[in-house]
Design a binder for these strands. Structure first.
Lengths: 234, 234
DNA sequence: GTTCGTGGCGAACGTTGTTCGTAGCGAACA
DNA sequence: TGTTCGCTACGAACAACGTTCGCCACGAAC
């Protein structure tokens, strides 16, 4: 294969040496770069090739430090959720602290649009996420929830959070504001035949009311109410 | 381009005519074929090319009837969720009927591994799904839930269902049984340092107890309990 | 001064979704 | 009856993806 000899030298024949002090590759640098792309352009833009280009190298170089695309995504998710601080548990403020944790996750995921998709159905088992799970479990137990209910709630609550994050991420990706989609839906609901969709037509207003945050807070609150009710019943 | 002339005739030079009565293409046939592949091999196996091959044609032929991959997936999802029957609403049995609907969705999605991923964050707005939403809203109102709470619950309950379906779908895709993963997790939890993960170590047994169905039923029940508690409080 | 090993990476492979241009059939028309 | 038209079907090609192969060049060791 002598294509090499026939090739016209490219515009950048500079060797590895005379580049302006390119920092050496590392897993951390790769993940950071990927997160930068994620914040700016969403998950679909984070391809191996794109990350490599951003680091001024070829895609093959990444595989020395990262096992592949899925591993990169998991590392990104861990960095994002791990950025949410874990306070010192205060049993008296268990519900407040739980809300803060979950809302922090929601915010972190919303500023990294699409990353929630990585978490759905693939519960992370890194040290950071286990520490968070332990913290969460402690808060629920402090709230008087039975161990079994608390344990299962540690499954459901992050699940609700990531699912909520996904929903708003899709809105962001589509470029629509919440008000715009709400108006479209309200119009669509109003136009529905009232005999076949009686409840939707009658309650179209409350169906579209409330943005993602409000709905998220509602979901968590209702679930916690349910847990507390169970604890009182036992 | 005369490659045509140089080509050796393939093993199947049969024209469109003398094939054994191939049924004509249609959106319905495409979706059915895709669902068959989905059931047998999971969502990743459902590619345009694979569906086309299964229909004994080329990928380009599909685009006459289906807008593209995403539209096909949405159509598949609609068929799957739409297969769950909607009973005549009986206000006295509202909670039972709600459970039946959601559990039906869960079952339907579990037998089509991976399809839940399509639903996450992309609430369907087909006629079938709107009918289901109207039904669900009616049941919640019959249960004495306030319109606003009922409306938001129509968001959260399917979200919980699809998220649960995803979790079990991943288990299925990985080929692990629930018992196997539970054992692995129990061992991992027990090996954790008790000073940093006190709650996980102490309650490892309840953390791994209960399969997907049990956890799903728990999630729905707790959420409905919370809704009822709110209704009683107002 | 020569050899060796290793990190870096260009190029290539196999697949994906999607589009283009054409072939071929049935129906309509001259 | 012969010709044209329109439309379905589809082979081939394109761009982009994740991943792997194999070579190159550098620094360290002998």
């Amino acid at each position: 294969m002598s294509t090499r000899l026939l090739d016209v030298p490219t515009a950048h024949p500079r060797s590895t040496r005379d580049r302006p002090a390119k920092p050496p590759l590392s897993e951390g640098l790769i993940v950071e770069t990927a997160l930068k792309i994620l914040r700016a352009e969403g998950l679909d833009a984070v391809t191996m090739r794109r990350v490599a280009t951003e680091l001024d190298t070829g895609p093959a170089s990444l595989y020395v430090y990262i096992g592949g695309r899925d591993e990169l995504r998991r590392a990104m998710l861990d960095r994002v959720t791990g950025s949410v601080p874990i306070e010192e548990p205060d049993p008296a403020r268990w519900r407040e602290q739980l809300h803060a944790l979950l809302e922090g996750w929601l915010r972190a995921m919303e500023t990294h649009p699409g990353i929630a998709a990585v978490a759905v159905g693939d519960p992370p088992t890194t040290e950071r996420s286990l520490l968070a799970a332990d913290y969460m479990l402690g808060l629920l137990l402090a709230g008087g929830i039975t161990p079994q209910d608390a344990a299962w709630a540690c499954d459901i609550l992050p699940l609700l959070t990531t699912a909520s994050a996904m929903e708003t991420a899709v809105h962001i990706a589509r470029g629509h504001s919440w008000e715009a989609t709400a108006e479209r839906f309200e119009a669509a609901f109003a136009a529905l035949p009232a005999d076949r969709f009686p409840n939707i037509v009658r309650h179209g207003d409350v169906l579209i009311s409330g943005d993602g945050d409000e709905r998220f807070r509602f979901a968590i609150d209702v679930f916690l109410d349910g847990l507390v009710a169970r604890a009182g019943r036992a």
